[in-house]
Design a protein around this nucleic acid. Structure first.
Lengths: 152, 152
DNA sequence: CGTGAAAATTTGCGGAT
DNA sequence: ATCCGCAAATTTTCACG
């Protein structure tokens, strides 16, 4: 994990579909070396894959929310089964398993406020382990394009 | 936005670096048509780009947290300037601008608990508009690989 | 880590349904 | 209007130094 690897990650984070040739040119090495490094990063698990960045509003999922959920009892079995259930829901973008006063924060995207309401009261609260739910609408979700290694 | 577009998005979400040829084969159309559709989706803004999925622990950022922040006063100027500042921090993965009892939820990744503590007390609370901070450690963050259009 | 050649993919154009 | 086949241009990929 040297300076060269970091530079390759920086390039691919700006656009994960950048061609190997472009990455090599930007970093200042040959395409072959860039390819070898990138493959090694993938083999070592540093690069897990590439995700599409979609306009959620354009696909009819323009309403986002964070739903804090408290689970009772918070035993391993109950936590893990709720986690897997929540992560597989079509409304779910992501699931944070957290410490603090809540056990989960669900990041969901739905089509409308009605869909959100239905999600919370028809799906979530029907589960017996759900002791408490607190919903916050997400007005905006910004994501950082560059997540660099080590200390900044 | 028909069934074909949805199928293409489904394929590219499973791996945003999939070749156009593979996408076409999986969807059952010619590479030419697949390319044309994919470009149209990009031109219409449905596809915004592709992001790398990194193993944060492998780049020395293995400690994640959600930091709920309350801002005073919550006027547009103050909100927007805090938002832009927070989104640009190297520790920040994402910024949620929310309704509810907090104004922001910051998703951050740092190297250690010490770094997290330093982030919160040395960076966040130094800003005068930050009225309240509540930090939750993220034990695990699952993300959904398939975000499908419309009503599931 | 680079060079050069071979294989695979992307991509634009003309034509078919 | 949408989709496909073909061939050129670009890119990936590998054996070798």
């Amino acid at each position: 994990m040297d300076e060269l690897d970091a530079a390759i990650l920086r390039e691919l984070q700006s656009d994960a579909r950048k061609t190997n040739r472009d990455v090599a040119a930007a970093v200042g090495i040959s395409p072959t070396t860039a390819l070898e490094r990138t493959r090694a990063l993938r083999a070592r698990g540093v690069i897990r894959g590439a995700r599409l960045d979609l306009d959620l509003a354009a696909i009819g999922r323009g309403v986002q929310a964070l739903v804090a959920v408290r689970i009772r009892p918070p035993s391993r079995d109950v936590i893990e089964s709720f986690r897997d259930w929540a992560a597989a829901l079509p409304q779910t973008l992501g699931v944070f398993v957290t410490s603090g006063s809540e056990d989960f924060i669900l990041h969901v995207a739905v089509g409308s406020n009605d869909d959100l309401y239905a999600f919370v009261i028809d799906e979530l609260t029907l589960r017996r382990e759900v002791a408490d739910v607190r919903t916050s609408i997400v007005y905006e979700h910004l994501q950082n394009r560059s997540v660099l290694p080590v200390g900044r």
